[in-house]
Design a binder for these strands. Structure first.
Lengths: 243, 243
DNA sequence: CGAGGGTTTGAAGTGCATCAAATAGTGTGG
DNA sequence: CCACACTATTTGATGCACTTCAAACCCTCG
């Protein structure tokens, strides 16, 4: 990627809204571009933070592991999201582990440079606050869902947020973005439970499933089934709007 | 409260670390002090946010309600925490409901003034970023706990974080900060389940319970019982350090 | 003392996890 | 292009953790 292209791409990120052109050029010149295949671990819980990583394509699992080997998936991110930016800002070490879930590309910029830039141009922190505040809201919504929704509803809710045009009435078609096993973990349930939940939605609401593609014949009925246990109103916050 | 006292108290809040004295004086002059009894609702999901409220004493429940009347408790806050600062900052607001859980006092400053101050002194946003980042980490830890820990372990974990001197070996005594019913909701379980969990800890680990006071004979064994399902190491992030 | 909410205890039901095994899907080398 | 190995997914059977419903108990406060 040419430096100019890199600058442009960086600049388009919500994270860097409001950053002046000359600052972006400086940041871009120190930015590394990389690709990693599925399964690659980017960093893990406890590692010293050296870079701020931003996903440019693919999917990345952010999780925490216990001594006993259990895993809690905190999020699964795609472009244009930064990885654990809260840790990068606040902590000396990563608070989670990041693993590539689907072949992914990254921009990585030295965390010191990023922090220095923020210090030199403190008004940029205001934009960053917006970004982080949205992430926090999203996480609160997640906690609410875990508390109040049954597994079927969590799955339905996730599907609704994948629908390309929520406004449309009538059949919606969508593609599951990554492995069903990971989807299950992302939603805090076992793969078997996820599979059965999809089965229930199929039976109850006529949803069609072919591999990773599925069709929802009636969005309204899925909303009725799903959103009754949620405090928001559809179309609610969508994962791709998070940052 | 005298204006001077108010200024001093405001200034001591982590939220306002680094705010210059003259700015604090200005903020304090516009700050309202109030008290509300248990049960009072401060604001609810959907209300326009006009003030930034900061708890000065007592406890406040932050929750979201569904149409069906179910409630998800997102947090229970005490001094010196601000209420829903993320919502105050981010647009559009996501919002939650805040209810006084134990008689509480507040500082309230007009949100516009707060935002204007941030804009005028953008470097203050850097400190705010630190605060919000810690809140986010804390919420991630909560989500991990809900995913990986059994109810007994969640209760034990909560108790450990209430211990006054985590370093001490030998019997620790602590007081539950608010109703057991609310505690249960805060930990994402039913009151009955919470009660039984305490009973289990009593039986398994010799914890003594007298009303809202309890004694833990051996912190190490409680840690072993509780923290094995958690990715952190005790003493982990404590609720009172959150902001 | 009596009323009402907070808390505990018991019994029964349910949702999800777990274990086990079959099936579908994917990539490999022949 | 096929056979194989390996993984992802589905399906079934069983068990357990937690919820739900019900009732007793306790505690505070008027």
């Amino acid at each position: 990627m040419t430096p100019e292209a890199c600058t442009l791409t960086l600049q388009s990120l919500p994270l860097f809204q409001g950053f002046p052109a000359e600052v972006m050029k400086e940041l871009a010149s120190k930015t590394t571009v990389s690709k990693h295949p599925k399964g690659h671990m980017l960093f893990q819980h406890g590692d010293t933070i050296k870079h701020l990583h931003i996903v440019t394509h693919g999917w990345v699992k952010v999780s925490r592991l216990t001594e006993e080997g259990d895993e809690a998936v905190l999020d699964v991110l795609t472009a244009p999201h930064p990885l654990q930016i809260m840790d990068a800002i606040a902590a000396p070490a990563w608070g989670a582990t990041a693993t590539v879930a689907e072949d992914a590309g990254f921009f990585s910029l030295p965390i010191n440079l990023f922090k220095a830039t923020l210090n030199e141009h403190p008004h940029l922190a205001l934009g960053l606050l917006q970004t982080t505040a949205k992430m926090h809201q999203s996480l609160q919504r997640e906690l609410e869902g875990r508390t109040l929704q049954k597994t079927d509803q969590r799955v339905g809710c996730f599907l609704l947020r994948l629908v390309p045009n929520p406004g449309d009435t009538h059949p919606a078609t969508l593609t599951l973005p990554y492995d069903k096993t990971l989807l299950a973990a992302r939603l805090g349930m076992q793969p078997e439970t996820f599979s059965r939940a999809l089965g229930n939605l199929k039976r109850e609401l006529g949803i069609t499933i072919q591999g990773h593609t599925l069709t929802i014949p009636n969005l309204k009925s899925l909303q009725a089934y799903t959103c009754s246990a949620c405090s928001g109103t559809y179309p609610c916050i969508r994962s791709t709007q998070k940052a």
